[in-house]
Design a protein around this nucleic acid. Structure first.
Lengths: 219, 219
DNA sequence: CTCGTTTCGATACGGTGTACCGTACGCTGG
DNA sequence: CCAGCGTACGGTACACCGTATCGAAACGAG
């Protein structure tokens, strides 16, 4: 059998990431494996494995593929606005592919797209706005952690499942032992899938770290 | 072989969770399986599986075991102080067992310990302090997401590994393309394992949500 | 004592990640 | 033009996993 050049085109890192993301989206996180992915790509399972070195490498590839969505910010934009735009975009890209972050677990995320499109410009803007490098990295990391935590635990695409299991569990609680949880069910349930929980939290972290806000407060 | 009563004592939910946590701590997240866990417990692997129904159930059991560490807060404690104590304690318990959260992924956490020791009292305190149920659950969820995100991505027990990989990656970057990241390496690296990143972020979220602070600000 | 229920151990199965090996392509130096 | 070789591929093999199933042993009720 001749070495089909179609394999070379099908197994490019970008195609691997995109195909893996589509697979997770369509068939759930549990359906992702080297074999199922290779079947979609039309190559042998060992091939895509060697491309990624590892299962963790495959997930890193997918994650960084999403970080490419973080937009460039026009120079001159206010620091707080630029910051919110970047993290909101990352959050939206991540929640558009639920299950991916869950699969990655706590693995450090140091892909070129994340570093180039988020970390580097965000730190540069922060220092330019008057923060020390320490303040800049600390503020960045807080927002990063909130963003990834939120994107991990908010299931946007399938709110039914998160909502359903939460509703079921909470409804079965003893009102005598959990008066607040059982008494305010109607207020609690929507928060499980409400993106404003993240957006508002991000805004609070941004305001707390804003150099302009600090200056204003100290004046 | 007689039905040894030792199995009954060894397979209690509490012992399962504690043993699984010890296994993850000592041999890493990858070493956790029904078979290795059953070997430590001295029972067959199918037995511990039936106790948990599922692998996800086992991880839920472990997680909720940690939530038992969240302390009771003496009545009369200030809202902001009580809030910080609860989430800091949860964070500390979670980071004491790195890898556990990574294994759980994005699974909703609704165990009785978390609900009884964190959610219910926190919401009760918040409403008592003047927040509406919607405000209370939103503020809770923001802090919860930051806490889990931080605990997931900060490797407390093995800072070397997180630090080492981060240092390696950042050191290999092109200074021309990443001037900030390469220029402030000394400031950036410690933040990867600095718990103050979380503590400070939590404090900012607490202050932003504090009903007393709101009243003071509106006055 | 006997029977039904429950719990445990043993086994079997499908599927996974990974390591290894033979091979065919495509480039390079002569 | 053409040997030679590095590289990337497919196929196979293995150890391990989670889960389902089944028989046997222990317990309580009658």
């Amino acid at each position: 059998m001749p070495r089909q050049s179609a394999s070379l085109d099908s197994a490019t890192p970008g195609r691997i990431a995109a195909t893996a993301l589509a697979l997770v989206d369509e068939e759930g996180p549990g359906a992702l494996s080297f074999r199922t992915l290779a079947a979609r790509l039309g190559v042998a399972h060992a091939t895509v494995q060697r491309r990624c070195t590892d299962l963790a490498g495959l997930l890193d590839l997918c994650a960084d593929h999403l970080a490419a969505d973080v937009p460039d910010i026009p120079p001159g934009t206010d620091w707080d606005r630029a910051t919110e735009i970047r993290f909101r975009r990352l959050y939206e890209s991540l929640t558009a592919h639920p299950g991916l972050l869950a699969l990655r677990g706590g693995r450090p995320w140091l892909g070129p797209q994340l570093l180039g499109r988020l970390v580097e410009p965000q730190l540069a803007d922060s220092i330019r706005a008057g923060m020390t490098p320490e303040e800049a990295i600390t503020a960045y990391r807080r927002m990063y952690l909130l963003t990834l935590g939120s994107a991990t635990f908010v299931d946007h695409r399938d709110p039914k499942s998160s909502l359903a299991v939460t509703r079921t569990v909470l409804a079965a609680l003893d009102p005598a032992e959990f008066p607040v949880l059982t008494g305010h069910l109607a207020a609690i349930l929507p928060a499980v899938v409400d993106h404003e929980v993240f957006y508002g939290g991000l805004r609070q972290l941004v305001r707390a770290a804003d150099p302009a806000g600090h200056a204003r407060r100290e004046a």
